[in-house]
Design a protein around this nucleic acid. Structure first.
Lengths: 179, 179
DNA sequence: ACAAACATGTAAAGGGTTACATGATTGG
DNA sequence: CCAATCATGTAACCCTTTACATGTTTGT
């Protein structure tokens, strides 16, 4: 198993069978904040997982519209658990806001402030989105301790980020030495 | 300008001319925590930036070992400033620790605890590395407010993360409802 | 002498996103 | 009837990492 799309899919199928479309919807309300997955990965990967016996396809059409839901097999659950227990926690970030902030020595003070505010606005928007998701998913989250834990982590971290950036904004506004 | 490697290079050349090798060393002590760049990108991109007149190459060999340092041109500085002021702050994260934590419903309580601890150990290691960098770069950082600000952001955020994960660890140890 | 660091580069492979294509169903 | 959503899929493109190649200088 090369990248980790496969494991993400196994993970998201642990609670109940889902179609590729349903998985994509779930991804966009959950992992996409720390692990994005696109259709271009989902459909081919589901077929690969099936070929390896880690999931089973069940046809479940709605009228004439076909729909294929995938169910985690025992082998799939074993593979999922093995991967979860591997002692690795890779981390990779592309943060354009922070990158630009670091390079602001090239700007005037008021321009740097604008850069910081863009950064801040971006994080505020993400935080708002996370609040929405928490509200909309409240019933499901009550039954799922770890998704719930991950969401709290995301929310509280973004709250911290927003507060920190607001503090930095105030310091810049007063033209204080940044450090 | 397609990806943003070019802008990162322009940004890192703002203080003084550097060779590709020197840029890579700088990247590995600075942006790599939120914007990684590899040799495979640096050397071709420097030549592209030169062809576009955004940097100037100056040959500066050490004995028979060639070395080419690149200097930001006025056009390059203009381009850098324009990019910094664009109101965009893209954000992309691949966080395997958080991903696994979210999927721990598939595990026993003690196994989930192990996943959390791997996650925690990883962040502690990054935090240690950031402390090292702060010490080693202290003299330079005193003269560079924004790199300094970005480093503080990174350190304080990782301190927050480590504390949060330790709290979650305690809750899991006591088998408390996670949320 | 030798290893480590300095210095530059390229090709292949890998991974991911985007854009497009196709068609059915539901709700207004 | 029309738009939005459901549902599946692919090919092209883009970017990045990895692995390798080559040669010099410095420090032990």
């Amino acid at each position: 198993m090369r990248g980790d799309v496969g494991h993400v899919l196994l993970g998201l199928l642990q609670w109940r069978p889902r179609s590729g479309y349903e998985i994509k919807q779930l991804v966009d309300r959950s992992t996409r904040f720390f692990w994005a997955v696109s259709y271009g990965q989902i459909y081919p990967e589901l077929r690969r997982l099936e070929k390896e016996g880690l999931v089973e396809a069940e046809s479940d059409p709605v009228g004439a519209r076909r729909r294929t839901r995938y169910r985690l097999t025992e082998a799939g659950r074993t593979e999922l658990r093995a991967w979860l227990l591997e002692p690795r926690a890779g981390y990779e970030l592309r943060d354009e806001g922070l990158l630009k902030l670091m390079l602001c020595d090239a700007l005037e003070a008021d321009e740097a402030l604008a850069v910081l505010r863009t950064f801040l606005a971006d994080r505020e928007a993400v935080l708002e989105r996370l609040y929405e998701i928490r509200e909309q998913s409240a019933p499901i989250l009550r039954e799922r301790p770890f998704p719930s834990l991950a969401l709290e982590y995301g929310i509280e971290q973004h709250e911290w980020i927003v507060e920190w950036l607001r503090g930095a904004e105030r310091r810049l506004e007063r033209r204080e030495a940044v450090r």
